[in-house]
Amino acid sequence: MATVHIPAPLRTLTGGQAEVTAPGETLGEVMDRLAAEHPGLKERLTNGDRIRAGFAVFVDGVSASPYLNTRLDENAEVYFAPAIAGG
């Protein structure tokens, strides 16, 4: 079961919960499960086959591919953070 940490402005879509759980072997599968429980969440976080521009995704502490086919371990911790670029 993956744990997804919800960005602050989207917690209105999860009933105020800062983290939610869902099963899935990929980021996309987890997002699909969350979409059923929390309508609107997937649309706000994703765009087509990837995470929406402006967000970076961290899986188990490591910056991960923004594409929804990113593989997740069974108890993955998923964070969405602002996308940043270095100099």
Partner: peptide, 21 residues
């Protein structure tokens, strides 16, 4: 203005609003 994937109704010079909490 876009806030976590949601666009404001009126145009603005503010392109995005990031919220961390």
């Amino acid at each position: 203005t876009e806030t976590a994937g949601e666009k404001a109704a009126q145009p603005s010079n503010v392109a995005s609003h990031t919220i961390l909490e």
